[in-house]
Design a protein around this nucleic acid. Structure first.
Length: 493
RNA sequence: GGCGGUAUCGUCUAGGGGACUAGGACACGGCCCUCUCAAGGCUGGAACACGGGUUCGAAUCCCGUUACCGCUACCA
């Protein structure tokens, strides 16, 4: 099913959305969420999701940032549908659109210098008045304009702000109206002295060319919107529908910045967050399915997504909930899809090699099955996997203090445990439990008193998966060797 | 300053005139489960910014106030 968008200003149009970041840094979580919502909308209604790199600020744009945006989007799995559009490559069309404005008489050349304007602005500020360009250049007669241009005098092109009011039906905010007199500083500049377009001009030109029918972006663009609408109208182009998403703030309610910790999606990737968890978490920041569902797969998000449940309120980025969400997805996904993500991390940590993982795949799969439910991040998984992958385990001092407090008592328990386990015919949970519980009874104690010292002997820690699972994962040989080593340690300390 | 936007537990949110004694989730506390840790189940505390209207009835609609955020460039 392919839907179309219908707007009061235009007939039905194919659904085309775009994510248009400027490459001046990494992919910010706010940008990622904007991209996600655009993508979700496109997927849900059978539209196209496009990517445009707004690289017209040569001073701040970098290739590294562009790469970071691609990598972030790819990690999240937010694939765009057509070739990437680089705004900087469209200068000719931007200028042509400005020429069209000039020709239609909705824009005019202005010879005022930046210094003059700055002085006027200062003056207005001193008088506590809002500065508005006084249109002095609009009254220069055409012949004079021609002459000054011919003489090589620098000029900018200004859009002539019409009287009246500009209104649109925002998909998330409802009707928003601006009196035209309050839009910016009056007749705003669309083309700089150097012949390059100003942001709003470039955006409108590109969105027209890309046939964007739904502009979904951060609500910091609300005040740009009336200017852009005026430009669309002056250019005779159909208006897109606008949807302004709320911002994402840090824990202190201020704009999310480096002070709040990680703001780049790439950082969360390296912190061991799963892309599907990131997406799920981001989706819930500013949108809800309208009921109590929280943990969703990507497919469910597409299915459930709808514009009517978009929030107007800025959300605070809570990393604790992100981690919880990641834990949910960790236990949700199969060990087989988790393994390819974890294997490189295990290798990086020097715990194994990719070849080893390939070689003992079934074993690694069952290990992950045990660990994923008690981990919140991929880093947790790696940390918890350590005792099963290295032989030189260390005894955690707290574990020793708590579970091996009485050395001889612990040694007794371990000796009995070792003997019992060694006699087992089948190295499986049921016989283990049966035999060890019987041992506990014979020793006049409880299972816990046997299991806990054994846990320290096997893993060096007080926490681990179920003790029989640990024994199985370690295997008979290694388990018994570890108990022997613990016995030696207990005798020596 | 001007203009615009926003306002429900600490946080994310449900709610759209009566179903609200305001629901869920994160976090925090308790209990259960239990060999530990998670997960899970049960449970506790915790919110409609304030003031006026409209209405038989307002968290929901209107107005004002306050607070916060954004924009206010020849940045994007």
């Amino acid at each position: 099913m392919v839907y179309t968008l219908v707007n009061s200003m235009s007939s039905a149009r194919p659904i085309r959305l775009r994510f248009a970041p400027s490459p001046t840094g990494y992919l910010h979580v706010g940008g990622a969420r904007t991209a996600l919502f655009n993508w979700l909308f496109a997927k849900k209604y059978g539209g196209q999701f496009l990517l445009r790199i707004e690289d017209t600020d040569k001073a701040r744009s970098t290739e590294a940032s562009t790469t970071a945006i691609y990598e972030g989007l790819e990690w999240l799995g937010l694939q765009w549908d057509e070739d990437v559009v680089y705004q900087g490559a469209n200068l000719d069309r931007h200028q042509a659109h400005v020429a069209q404005l000039l020709k239609a008489g909705t824009a005019y050349r202005c010879f005022c210098t930046a210094a003059e304007l700055e002085a006027q602005r200062k003056e207005a500020h001193a008088l506590k008045e809002a500065f508005r360009y006084d249109r002095r250049c609009d009254s220069i007669d055409p012949a004079t304009v021609e002459k000054r241009v011919a003489a090589g005098e620098p000029f900018v092109v200004r859009f002539r702000m019409p009287e009246g009011t500009t209104t649109w039906d925002d998909l998330v905010h409802g009707t928003i109206t601006f009196p035209n007199k309050d839009i910016g500083e009056g007749d705003f500049i669309v083309l700089r002295t150097d012949g390059t377009p100003i942001y709003n001009m470039a955006v409108v030109s590109d969105d027209i060319a890309m046939e964007i029918s739904l502009v979904m972006r951060g609500d910091d663009h609300i005040s740009n919107t009336p200017k852009q609408i005026l430009l669309y109208e002056a250019l005779g182009a159909p208006l897109p529908i606008f949807a302004h998403l709320p911002m994402i703030h840090g824990m202190d309610g201020k704009k999310l910045s480096k002070r709040h910790g990680a703001t780049a999606v790439g950082e969360y990737q390296h912190l061991g967050i799963l892309p599907q968890a990131m997406l799920n978490f981001l989706a819930l920041l500013g949108w809800s399915p309208g009921n109590d569902i929280e943990v969703m797969t990507l497919e469910q998000m597409i299915e459930l997504f709808d514009a009517s449940h978009l929030s107007k309120k800025a959300a605070i980025f809570d990393t604790q909930k992100l981690e919880w969400m990641n834990g949910q997805h960790l236990s949700l996904i199969g060990a087989d899809v988790l393994l390819p993500r974890v294997a490189p991390l295990l290798a990086d940590a020097g715990l194994t090699t990719l070849q080893d993982v390939e070689h003992r795949k079934a074993w690694f799969l069952s290990l992950l099955e045990l660990l994923k439910v008690r981990a919140r991040t991929l880093d947790d998984v790696v940390r918890q996997a350590s005792p099963y992958l290295r032989d030189d385990i260390e005894y955690d001092p707290d574990a020793v203090a708590k579970q091996w407090k009485d050395r001889s008592l612990s040694a007794d328990a371990l000796r009995g445990t070792r003997e019992t386990l060694a006699q087992l015919e089948r190295w499986e949970p049921e016989p283990m439990e049966e035999a060890l519980r019987a041992l506990a009874e014979r020793m006049g104690t409880t299972g816990g008193k046997i299991f806990q010292p054994m846990r320290v002997a096997l893993t060096g820690l007080t926490v681990s998966p179920g003790i029989f699972d640990v024994l199985v994962m370690l295997g008979r040989e290694r388990s018994l060797a570890r108990i022997d080593r613990a016995l030696e340690w207990l005798a020596a300390n």
